[in-house]
Design a protein around this nucleic acid. Sequence first.
DNA 1: TGCAAATATACTAATATTTGCATATGAATA
DNA 2: TATTCATATGCAAATATTAGTATATTTGCA
Lengths: 113, 113
Amino acid sequence: MNNITAKVEIIKTIAHPARISILDELIKGVKCVSDFQSFLEISQPNISQHLSALRHAGLIDFFVDGRLRCYFLKNPIIPDLLDVLKKDYTKDLPGPECCPVTKRGTYPGVRRR
Amino acid sequence: MNNITAKVEIIKTIAHPARISILDELIKGVKCVSDFQSFLEISQPNISQHLSALRHAGLIDFFVDGRLRCYFLKNPIIPDLLDVLKKDYTKDLPGPECCPVTKRGTYPGVRRR
DNA sequence: TGCAAATATACTAATATTTGCATATGAATA
DNA sequence: TATTCATATGCAAATATTAGTATATTTGCA
């Protein structure tokens, strides 16, 4: 469960605006489906589908209370990932001075097309 | 450049095993295309396509040295994201005790289908 | 100048993802 | 028990992603 394939599955699953929003909300606490309807501008079946995808990826889970389904965060990688995504990066990484293979070339390099 | 759409684009772009591998290698330092061929089991055109996708997403860049293209990391979010992806998570997040709306229900909840 | 090396691009076919819509299910309530 | 509320499921259409194959571009060198 900690190999690269599993991690790729996780990020593939969260790489969607609606699903990021859902997870963002779940960080704050448990929510049922109708709660999501108030701030997501997508249909109820679509919300259900996204929740289902998140659950199948092991990122969230739910418990049943009457006719409500109360969803909550399950996978601990999510808060960490969302933290990084919220971070504000202003500067690019420093570029290398030259090609480490030939010890030649310059940066910023010539870009011909 | 720091809105949710941009972030989603970034994670969408890295959500592929080959691209994760490429970025993992670039963390160690500059690499040209043929370097990637030695450890990625995919064709050269395919590597080029992945590099192109990563570059269009602003994650990497390159400079030209003769007939080599020396690629390097550009976007500072990448090392942070890869760190999280490498982290080892053993336990699930603690589940909620009950439904915060109705103050009823239990976790782990009844799962009927 | 002509060839080979390094890399990119174009196009296509296969496959996956996303959404919308219609409908189904299960629990609460009248 | 019939109805309604909350939510899920199934399926089809639209769209996006991926990989493969063929070919093009650029550069260095003989």
